[in-house]
Amino acid sequence: MNSLDLLKAPEDTRVVVAMSGGVDSSVVAGLLAAEGYEVIGVTLQLYDHGEAVQRAGSCCAGQDIDDARRVADTLGIPYYVLDYERRFREAVIDPFANSYVSGETPVPCIACNQTVKFADLLATAKDLGADALATGHYIASRQDGAHRALYRPVDDSRDQSYFLFATTQEQVDYLRFPLGDLPKSRVREMAEEMGLAIAEKPDSQDICFVPRGRYSDMIAKLRPGAAEPGEIVHLDGRVLGRHEGIINYTVGQRRGIGVATGEPLYVVAVDADKARLIVGPAEALETRRVHLRDVNWLGDGRIEDAAGGQGLPLVARIRSSRPPKPARLFADEQGVYVDLQGETGVAPGQACVFYADDGPRARILGGGFIARGEKSADAEAALKSLSAQTVAAE
């Protein structure tokens, strides 16, 4: 058994490494090459780079391809660039735009992992005769009986499990994540020890295809006319003003709403059909339950057996920047839903990820996308009242 839990000597094991041009994936390639594996580096060209070529803090930019190529030359491994621009637009950019216009808050990095990276690139790796596809994600993977299971990494500050919950069991069995047991500080040291020119390169922070991090600018470009003006309505029914397009707002937002009433107001809901922005006090953001779609279950057995009846106690994360909190998962005739504790600002389109516990190396049990949330009884009643008033007016 080699270090990748494969029944071959390293020199007889071919591994494709997804190289982004950053520190993490470069170190993965260096580690595996040093252990004697037959490493092939692959970078996906995902979008028309344009102004992103020199933009610091992005990922998948034009400079990244040059950086990955230099790393491959330093390590002495074969390296290829695959043109996935059309596929990336179809599978990630267009659905992102459609979701945003419909009033959701999508997470495109999850879609990218689901489709381009862990479906298309994984298939390419198999076509190349690779025994595994390795990436620089901070998540742990270990053998668990006949299959592999995913766990949160050692470095909690780098935990990327929120973005990888949709990885299927078949994909988990083929993928390898060598950085799951390493802190980021050690990874940078290793890059220096390997003599890699990218050792001090900043981490990517923005969504790669969103210039300067402004979602609304990108949506306006992709969907001209999507920024339709509409009313800003308080939960109590008062029309407070007008907005310049729902694509400029997301649930939980406080700044930049554009109305003043003497009380702090937050975006409580986005009514895309009526181009309305519904606002209210902070307490109206509290969410007690979320109903999920496109659920991916990575726990033992069937989700219906694990979460049926009284539900399954676990911890759940509804934003990548928030820690997991105690929750209870249900799977019954209503579908799959999660009862939450102390969560606010939950928006459709976000992910809800399940963990076995709140420990630093907790097992990832899967997750799903939020179709809708249930707020407090008062907030739900107010939203229903607004909807009823609109129907009556029509």
Rank of each mutant, 00 (worst) to 15 (best):
D73F: 00
T43V: 07
R87K: 02
R186N: 07
R152Q: 06
E200W: 02
V338P: 01
P153M: 06
Q45K: 11
L298N: 10
P95H: 04
H243T: 06
A382L: 13
E333F: 04
I207N: 01
V279K: 03
P10M: 12
P323H: 08
W297S: 01
L383D: 09
N113P: 01
G103T: 03
L82K: 03
M190D: 05
V353L: 06
L314Q: 10
E193F: 02
G262S: 12
N113C: 06
L4Q: 10
Q334N: 02
D48L: 08
A362C: 04
R55E: 05
P324G: 05
A134P: 15
F88C: 04
A382G: 08
A371Q: 13
D120K: 04
F163S: 03
G41H: 03
I198M: 05
D83Q: 06
R319Y: 13
A125V: 11
I232A: 10
T261A: 05
R289D: 00
L7G: 02
V53E: 10
V279A: 02
D156E: 11
S320C: 00
V39T: 10
P348S: 03
V290S: 04
S20V: 00
R148N: 12
D64S: 14
R86C: 00
T13V: 06
A199Q: 09
N248E: 15
D357R: 10
R372W: 10
A388K: 09
R69C: 07
A97D: 04
V39N: 14
A306C: 09
G237M: 07
R293W: 01
F369E: 09
A56V: 13
R223Y: 05
D357S: 14
S58C: 04
Q169K: 11
L7W: 12
P229V: 12
A284K: 09
G342T: 10
A199N: 07
K8E: 10
L265Q: 13
G241L: 14
L240V: 07
V210F: 14
P202Q: 06
G373W: 06
R322H: 04
G145H: 11
V187W: 07
A284N: 10
Y249R: 01
R214S: 02
E228T: 11
A197S: 15
G22P: 08
E286Y: 01
D144V: 09
V92G: 00
G237R: 09
T124M: 10
